[in-house]
């Protein structure tokens, strides 16, 4: 056990995964609320297209999603080509890429519950708040956020679990570079390839414990 914790790669992958999950959590919270509200409120062609993009990682193979991101955000990708190289996001095979992979993978799991709660009842409460003199921005903070907090919480827990276990998109965008972008999930794969089954088992137990914690958190949240 002590030997495993002295393994630089494993310690790095645990810390990288923790940092990634934390950054993705903050991004999920902000984007989940804004996108969930927008998609719950608007029913048009643009919102339909955004809804499709948000839902895509749920129904499209992660490796495929990763490839699309690579094609979009790469140094010679679509965004760089369209802007003549003026905007060339330097994120591929970096820690930022790992965070984006975790963010994209978990996004639908936050947006969908929030969107559903807003469509179900929150829009009606928001209408009431507007007639009571609150602006749209005040309504968002005073009514929408308190009303969806449970759905948001459940979505965030699920998304964090998804971010922890993300492999496909991370592999394409992050590149599985040892000591740079090897998250816990990728490190399990690396350990098995190196015949280090003890390390792989340790990381599996670690992820399994977190999954259990996620499960019980969700159960507690739904009982509230």
């Amino acid at each position: 056990m002590i030997d495993i914790l002295n393994d630089e790669n494993i310690v790095f992958s645990i810390l990288l995964t923790a940092r990634t999950c934390l950054a993705a959590l903050v991004l999920h919270c902000a984007a989940g609320l804004v996108l969930g509200y927008y998609l719950g409120k608007n029913k048009g062609i643009i919102s339909g297209f955004i809804d499709f993009l948000v839902t895509l990682p749920l129904v499209f193979p992660p490796v495929g999603t990763g490839f699309i991101l690579l094609y979009l955000l790469g140094r010679n990708g679509i965004i760089a080509s369209l802007t003549g190289g003026a905007v060339s996001p330097d994120i591929i095979f970096t820690e930022k890429g790992v965070v984006i992979a975790a963010f994209i993978a978990g996004l639908p799991l936050v947006v969908k519950p929030v969107q559903s709660a807003i469509e179900r009842e929150v829009l009606k409460l928001a209408e009431a708040a507007r007639t009571l003199g609150k602006t749209e921005l005040q309504t968002f903070f005073l009514v929408v956020i308190p009303s969806v907090k449970r759905s948001l919480g459940a979505g965030l827990i699920l998304a964090a679990g998804r971010s922890l276990g993300e492999v496909g998109i991370t592999l394409m965008v992050g590149g599985n570079l040892i000591g740079k972008t090897n998250t816990v999930s990728l490190e399990i794969y690396n350990s098995v390839m190196d015949a280090d089954f003890t390390g792989a088992a340790f990381l599996c137990i670690l992820l399994g414990s977190i999954s259990l914690a996620v499960f019980f958190s969700l159960k507690k949240l739904s009982a509230l």
């Binding site: 009606k124 009431a128 507007r130 009571l132 602006t135 308190p146």
Partner: peptide, 20 residues
């Protein structure tokens, strides 16, 4: 005018009290 500037006290059929 947006609803907040109209000063209409609207009482809805389904009450719409803030549950929290």
């Amino acid at each position: 005018l947006p609803p907040e500037q109209r000063k209409c006290g609207y009482i809805f059929q389904d009450k719409r009290l803030f549950p929290y």
